[in-house]
Write a protein that binds this DNA or RNA. Structure first.
Lengths: 239, 239
DNA sequence: TATCATATGTTGTATGATGAGTGACGAATT
DNA sequence: AATTCGTCACTCATCATACAACATATGATA
């Protein structure tokens, strides 16, 4: 068809995403109330002046986000509770520096809580897992590796001891945002062994406090550990 | 009524979602390495024996989740950093009770940190916002309303004082999971005014500690406040 | 060698047809 | 009259095909 005169959409990014964004907006603005039925695909086709393919891809987008639910034979409806909307950590109006600082801060507080809870609830198996993680990181260091994966495993093991799976999930979600910030890469190779040594001793301190069921001690040990990481990235604040 | 996963009741899963799940699995299992190119849509059509529409809807799903990125004319590639994966709070293998407990625990620790940080960083404007929220909740109570929205606004105001937008975002994300758990609805109407009164005084205590820049005080006040909410729902643990 | 035109492969979009679930209406049966 | 059941219109789900837009490799040409 004649696509030359094509409307106020602008056509640089994918059409389907632009349509999806517009629909998202209208939903969140309350244009379509929760539980209400969206216009049918055919109606949207006419409204936006695009093909049904585009409309369906846009709706698919909203469906994955948990904003709408499609019922075959009935229509597409706005979800009653939009609480299922996923949490993302990518505010585009933040500088890279701010983003990193705030994400790291979020992780720090969360991990301090993890350590405190772990100390209260840990089983013997948890202790084994935590110490095994420390051993593996040590082994990685001896092999000349950076051992970042093993480092993260330690923190996951601590989170696991809280017996709260959401804590683990959230840490696992937060992890990738933090690891790239690690100053390991730009560190002088000469200082690396010292750094790794202090890293291990900090982990050890956390582990021992957890083992001793010392909640406060585990919390402060974790706080010191992570705050040190912040300092190495020269983004310390009053955390 | 069950939400989604449903093979039994004649409600068969959509083809596109089954394909999407299989692809997700293969990606996370490392079958497709990060940065690698997925098979072309045409290849996937043959592999799965479905139409291109289905393949495209499945890929669209992965795209929204941030697992893959499609480039017109080149192909579909697994994202280098899967960090953009959204965080969801809906582990299906958890009982409703466990889900609520763990989500609430996550919120509690996060809000305690918020209160502590708010006390350190609050400006005078933050104090005004917090106290305004308390006033509005009071007004709502006087009007005979439950004032749950205003209650949440108070917590958001505290989060806002941390100057960490992710704290606000995360609380806003967590909020809807918690509010329905509030025991307000099943409370004897006679006790309601007392409950609302104590709610307000707890909020007031938090606000005053923040105003006094008493970090520890604000943290414990918030902990007490939320732990009380837990007790009212008879799901107290060693938090 | 360097540059440009072309061919090929890929995703994006458009269109039409068919299958399948839902709900409403009305005719047939009890 | 009340209930059952078939029909029909409407909807989303899937399929199939074609073309457009973009990226890259290939080969011809200067």
């Amino acid at each position: 068809m004649s696509k030359s005169g094509n409307l106020a959409l602008g056509m640089r990014p994918k059409l389907s995403e632009r349509v999806a964004d517009q629909l998202r907006e209208r939903i969140q603005k309350g244009d379509f109330a929760p539980g209400a039925q969206l216009p049918t695909e055919g109606a949207l086709v006419e409204q936006f002046g695009v093909s049904r393919t585009v409309i369906r891809e846009a709706l698919s987008s909203l469906r994955v986000d948990g904003l709408v639910k499609a019922h075959q034979g009935r229509g597409v409806f706005v979800c009653e509770d939009i609480s299922q909307q996923p949490f993302r950590l990518c505010s585009k109006d933040l500088s890279e520096q701010d983003h990193m600082e705030q994400a790291m801060e979020l992780r720090l507080h969360m991990e301090v809580s993890n350590a405190e809870l772990a100390a209260l609830r840990r089983t013997d198996a948890d202790i084994e897992g935590i110490e095994a993680a420390i051993q593996k990181q040590h082994a990685a260091h001896l092999s000349g590796e950076l051992g970042q994966t093993e480092d993260f495993s330690f923190h996951l093991a601590v989170a696991n001891a809280t017996k709260n799976s959401y804590m683990v999930d959230f840490l696992r979600f937060l992890g990738p945002f933090i690891i790239p910030a690690n100053a390991l890469h730009q560190m002088e190779p000469k200082k690396l062994p010292d750094y790794q040594q202090s890293l291990r001793s900090e982990h050890q301190a956390i582990a021992e406090a957890i083992k001793a069921r010392d909640s406060n001690g585990a919390g402060t040990a974790m706080r010191n550990h992570l705050r040190k990481g912040l300092l190495d990235n020269s983004m310390a604040r009053d955390i």
